[in-house]
């Protein structure tokens, strides 16, 4: 179900916790699985639960509670825009509007070519860099302007 490399990464996470506390690694394990699969299908969540020796329901609870897990297929590039107050005061809402126009999609939608998914995010803890957005959960883009959005999209389109 998961590659050897992903399993090794999960094993390294498990080793952080005391014996018998493998469940503590569920957040990392789901993150690692999502990076490999692109999103978290039900059978992958169940596999991860079994790997950590926890009930599948407990793993679903985690996957559905934390909003960076994707429970439906998404585009190759997920762009999450912060529209919370500090970002909104610095143009965050305009960033979201500009992205919608450029990509021709709304929030929680994916472009027909499967390249981009747009999400509205909550505070990312980087308000001094406002407006900010996240690319595929793990890369933060700071001080966004229209020019910077254009070059980001051009770079991602070429990948």
């Amino acid at each position: 179900m998961l590659s050897q490399e992903s399993l090794q990464q999960i094993d390294r996470e498990i080793a952080k916790y005391p014996p018998g506390r493998k469940q503590s690694a569920i957040m990392s394990a789901l993150r690692i699985a999502q990076v490999e699969k692109g999103w978290l299908p039900k059978d992958v969540i169940e596999f991860v639960a079994a790997y950590l020796g926890m009930p599948p329901m407990a793993a679903y609870e985690v996957a559905t509670f934390y909003n960076m897990y994707d429970l439906e297929p998404i585009g190759r590039h997920k762009i999450t825009v912060c529209t919370n107050l500090p970002c909104a005061l610095s143009g965050g809402v305009h960033v979201a509007e500009y992205l919608k126009r450029r990509l021709g999609i709304g929030f929680n939608e994916t472009t027909p070519d499967g390249r981009f998914t747009l999400k509205e995010g909550e505070c990312m803890g980087a308000c001094g860099d406002a407006p900010v957005l996240l690319h595929n959960n793990h890369h933060m883009c700071s001080f966004m302007t229209m020019d910077k959005i254009d070059s980001l999209l051009a770079e991602l389109e070429s990948q």
Partner: peptide, 27 residues
């Protein structure tokens, strides 16, 4: 000492929610 990451839940900044999350549960 180890690092543990959240994955998108403000409430986990509350200390007991954070502990639940560290145990691998909903926060």
């Amino acid at each position: 000492l180890f690092a543990h990451h959240g994955y998108g839940a403000y409430v986990c900044g509350e200390e007991t929610a954070l502990l639940e999350s560290l145990e691998g549960k909903k926060g």
